[in-house]
């Protein structure tokens, strides 16, 4: 967590996403083309070592979700909050926070779009992370 992101917030982990335009950063295997998120040099399909960084699609649909009502250990945000699995258009699903003004809008198959947002981290330093905001059908 060395690099300070825009607005003074620190990314929760280096290499998860880029800021402008916002995108999750995956790895595409240079041998078989398989994607993975977060990026890792070794391919999980063919075990080839060598992958290029790729910006994942910023839109998808909710495959499944839950609303968490009790704060888990070490969580820096507020409850309740939504988590889900988002199906992206390129053969990959990713686990993500789901964002909505009203959490009742979170539904399976709902369209959603990537959004970076901040949580209050330890000693007041904002922690930047990623989510998908539920949109209109």
């Amino acid at each position: 967590m060395s690099e300070v992101a825009q607005g003074g917030a620190t990314p929760v982990r280096e290499g998860l996403f880029r800021e402008d335009p916002p995108a999750l950063l995956g790895a595409r295997c240079e041998n078989c083309g398989a994607l993975r998120f977060p990026a890792l040099a070794v391919c999980a399909r063919c075990q080839h070592e060598g992958a290029s960084e790729v910006a994942l699609p910023d839109q998808g649909r909710v495959f499944t979700y839950t609303i968490v009502h009790a704060p888990p250990p070490g969580y820096a945000g507020e409850v309740p909050y939504a988590l889900g699995v988002v199906e992206l258009g390129d053969g990959l699903r990713v686990a993500a926070t789901l964002l909505a003004e009203d959490l009742a809008a979170v539904r399976i198959s709902a369209p959603c779009r990537l959004e970076l947002f901040d949580l209050a981290g330890e000693d007041g330093a904002a922690l930047r992370t990623y989510g998908f905001r539920i949109g209109e059908e």
């Binding site: 499944t64 839950t66 968490v68 704060p71 945000g77 988590l83």
Partner: peptide, 24 residues
């Protein structure tokens, strides 16, 4: 460790995902 502060490190969430999808 990075999954903890963002609230992603909760194993019952997986059980909820599974049955939510099953209900759907």
């Amino acid at each position: 460790p990075w999954r903890e502060p963002i609230g992603h490190a909760v194993n019952p969430v997986q059980f909820a995902y599974a049955i939510q999808r099953h209900m759907y």
